[in-house]
C-alpha cells in the first residue's frame, strides 16, 4: 500500500468523520438524555458543579467535535466527487444514493450551525463566560435548550441518512 493511496485517505477521512460524529452526538445525547433530566434531582449545594466544571469541558468537546465532523465529512464528499450534487439533494441525478447523503449532509449542517451559532453563544452567556444581565439568563438558557432538543430530533433522520447510504 502506498502512503498516497487515495482509497486509504478516503477511508481515513471516513474513520475520522465517524469518530468525531460519535464524540459530538455522544455529548448531545449526554446533555439531553442524562444531564438535563438529572439536574433537578441534584441537591442544591452540589448543583453549581455542573456549570462550573462539567459544562465548560463538555461544551468544548461538543463544539469542536461538531467542527471536525463537518470538516472531515465535507472533505469526504469532495474527494468522492458528489459534494455539488448532494447539496442540491441529487435532484436530476436519479441517484437515491446522492439524495440520501444530501439529506444527511443538510441535516448535519443545520445541526452544526445550531451548535456554533445558537447553542454555544447562548451557553457562554448562561455560564457567565460572556457578561449579560442575570435576568436574561433564563431566556438564553431556554433558547440554547430548545436548540439542543432540535438537534436531538434531527439526529435521528441524520444518522438514518448517513448510516443507511449503502441501502440506496
Amino acid at each position: 500500500m502506498e502512503l498516497v493511496d487515495i482509497t486509504w485517505w478516503n477511508f481515513c477521512f471516513r474513520w475520522l468523520h465517524i469518530l468525531s460524529g460519535i464524540m459530538w452526538i455522544g455529548h448531545l445525547y449526554y446533555f439531553n438524555f442524562t444531564q438535563t433530566p438529572t439536574v433537578p434531582k441534584i441537591p442544591a449545594e452540589l448543583r453549581p458543579a455542573i456549570p462550573r466544571f462539567i459544562m465548560p469541558e463538555a461544551l468544548w468537546w461538543f463544539r469542536w467535535s461538531a467542527m471536525s465532523t463537518i470538516v472531515f465529512g465535507l472533505l469526504l464528499a469532495l474527494m468522492n466527487g458528489y459534494l455539488g450534487q448532494a447539496i442540491i439533494l441529487g435532484i436530476g441525478s436519479h441517484s437515491a444514493h446522492i439524495t440520501d447523503i444530501g439529506f444527511g449532509m443538510w441535516l448535519g449542517t443545520i445541526m452544526w450551525a445550531n451548535v456554533w451559532f445558537i447553542i454555544w453563544p447562548n451557553q457562554q452567556k448562561v455560564l457567565g463566560m460572556v457578561e449579560v444581565p442575570a435576568d436574561q439568563r433564563p431566556r438564553l438558557a431556554r433558547i440554547a435548550g430548545l436548540a439542543s432538543r432540535v438537534n436531538t430530533l434531527l439526529s435521528i433522520p441524520m444518522v438514518y441518512c448517513m448510516a443507511g447510504v449503502h441501502f440506496y
Partner: peptide, 30 residues
C-alpha cells in the same frame, strides 16, 4: 399548548416521524 420539545419522548418520536418523511422524500426525488 405545551412545546413537544420539552418532552424528550415526544422529541424522539418526532425524530422518527421526520425520518419517515425524509425516506418518502428520497423515494419521491430519486
Amino acid at each position: 399548548m405545551k412545546n413537544p420539545l420539552d418532552s424528550l419522548g415526544q422529541t424522539v418520536a418526532l425524530g422518527f416521524v421526520l425520518t419517515i418523511v425524509i425516506v418518502l422524500l428520497i423515494h419521491a426525488i430519486a
